[in-house]
Design a protein around this nucleic acid. Structure first.
Lengths: 141, 141
DNA sequence: TTCCCCGTTTAGAATCGTTCTAATATATTG
DNA sequence: CAATATATTAGAACGATTCTAAACGGGGAA
């Protein structure tokens, strides 16, 4: 096993290529952080910090670029729960979120668990792109 | 009927007093714009512009202050659908939203129409504050 | 009415997350 | 290896929002 080329990495490189993205050092580093453990929620800032701690040195601009490119390629999804920061979710499947404002934490809710009934149909000329449920949490008193 | 004191205005002044807010010229002006027609969705910017057009001159900082005070007093609710701007909704009851990203428009969905089933219970130590559904719309092709 | 106190407003500066710019570096192709 | 297109970068720019400190004004007391 070569030090620089585990199966996970070659898979990731393949995913990037398939998405039309050159597997640069920076994109591979971020991809490893994002995709090698289970589902994750990150912000540009948090990922940048994490990358720095892991020894990768890349600019914050690159983190932003990469997160957007990954999102455009369907590798990530953007989650809007807070006006101040943008979250990115490695789980791109159908699901929803708990959001604990007081600790700025997102928790996935599997999509197949939740049934939503009685939604009106979209206004004329529009169609539904996605239905997002955010369950806001507060500390129990 | 006095020129400066319709019933709507005295009601508004009363609402502000009850909320512990002095009925200043600026708060009354914004309150009239917000509460005299039906349910509304505004941003600080849009309300500031509207106030200016209506002849009230107040600073953008005051609009921000007032929106936050009204929200803290339960006269308004904040709606998070877009990372860039914060929306405020005069409908503080239980309801949800359509959001048309391409024209930055919010449309209310009555709360009693929608039934959500199968939500997991809140994580330990947390409780559910509110369940928000956002239905994202795109123009039909 | 007049005075005073304290909450409110204000202009402008500051802050924060994010995006842009234009110069440099790097991946890929031939 | 050279050529070319794409990616990265530091730092400036940006837009929404918040902060600051000084001026203002509501409303109770005298």
């Amino acid at each position: 096993m070569r030090a620089s080329g585990s199966k996970a990495v070659t898979d990731l490189v393949q995913r990037l290529r398939t998405a039309g993205l050159r597997p640069t050092r920076q994109r591979v580093a971020l991809g490893r952080l994002l995709f090698s453990s289970g589902d994750r929620h990150v912000t540009a800032e948090s990922l940048h910090l994490e990358a720095a701690k892991a020894g990768a040195q890349l600019s914050l601009a690159t983190v932003y670029n990469t997160l957007h490119q990954f999102t455009a390629s369907g590798l990530l999804r953007q989650v809007v729960v807070d006006g101040a920061k943008t979250y990115f979710d490695t789980n791109t499947g159908d699901h929803h979120h708990f959001y604990a404002e007081d600790c700025a934490t997102l928790i996935d809710i599997p999509g197949d668990a939740v049934v939503i009934d009685g939604l009106p149909k979209a206004p004329a000329g529009m169609e539904i792109e996605r239905v997002e449920v955010v369950v806001r949490l507060k500390p129990r008193v």
